[in-house]
Amino acid sequence: MDTLIIDGLSFALPLFIMSIGGIYSERSGITNLAIEGLQGFGAFFGALSVVLLSHFFNIPIQKLFYLALLLSMVGGMIFSLLHGLLSIKFKANQVISGVVINILAMAVTVFLTTQINNMVFGAMSDKFQIGTSQRFTIPLLSKIPILGAIFKNIYPFEIVIVFMAIFAYYVFYKTRFGLRLRACGDNPHSVDAAGVEVSKVQFKAVMISGALSGLGGISFAYSISTNFSPAIYMGYGYLAIAALIFGNWEILPTFGACLLFGFARAGGYYMGQLLKLPSTFSDLIMTLPYVLTLLLLIFFSKTNRAPRALGEIYDKGKR
């Protein structure tokens, strides 16, 4: 039971922070299928930075953990500028732009990872080893029956994500920026008429989604594999999108959806171990989140309401 909660949370939280990024972008009216690429590029950027820093300055890589998180956010943000440029400035189809960015992110990061490994370390590898992130347990709280597991074996990034999520919630629903952002996704003309530059708000929203995706990406890199490799492109970015669709583009319900994914995945592995299935069955267990996504989409897609102006190319001149 404990492992279920521990593993479930360590998967659900990175997913959740990526979903929040998606909510920011989509509620501002910009369809964002690029999360998959953004999280990959963000994680790449963070991993690359700390690997280089630790190599050239001889710093133990474990010490650079928080820097890796920060730089991953920066990396995700940088790459998200592309989505902003294509879909806001160049008025490209936002779906196409998102998919293009995913493909490009994968190509670029794989190329650069092997190239840099070769040039700097003289190694033939498509991975950056970023070290393990030390887990910890909160003494008293972890003694609570059942729910105490929440406070056991926590990755530090989980704490960061929780705080980021709360802050993101506050900005989204309480501040001036949040009010304007949500208005953009419903009726950009009203925002324009109120003297606020729609494209700027949208650009910021897309950049935030890039940063949060990067944070999610590097967290997966730490929790699943302790390295950055092309295996980061597991489609979790798309799961994050599915989660925010069930969450009806609101932050709290989306959290519920992410928890569901997390526990389903952890539960699958748990079951696999319990039933002593041979390792080939791991392939089937891997499909669980995806199958669940499809099933949930079948039940929820019809009743859910996307932001009214989602995916619309905003043109000032048109009324």
Partner: peptide, 17 residues
């Protein structure tokens, strides 16, 4: 130029909150 899912007050202050 109104945001349908906002209240009247939210619509009015939009831009000069």
């Amino acid at each position: 130029k109104l945001v349908e899912n906002y209240t009247i007050a939210e619509n009015i202050i939009l831009g000069i909150e």
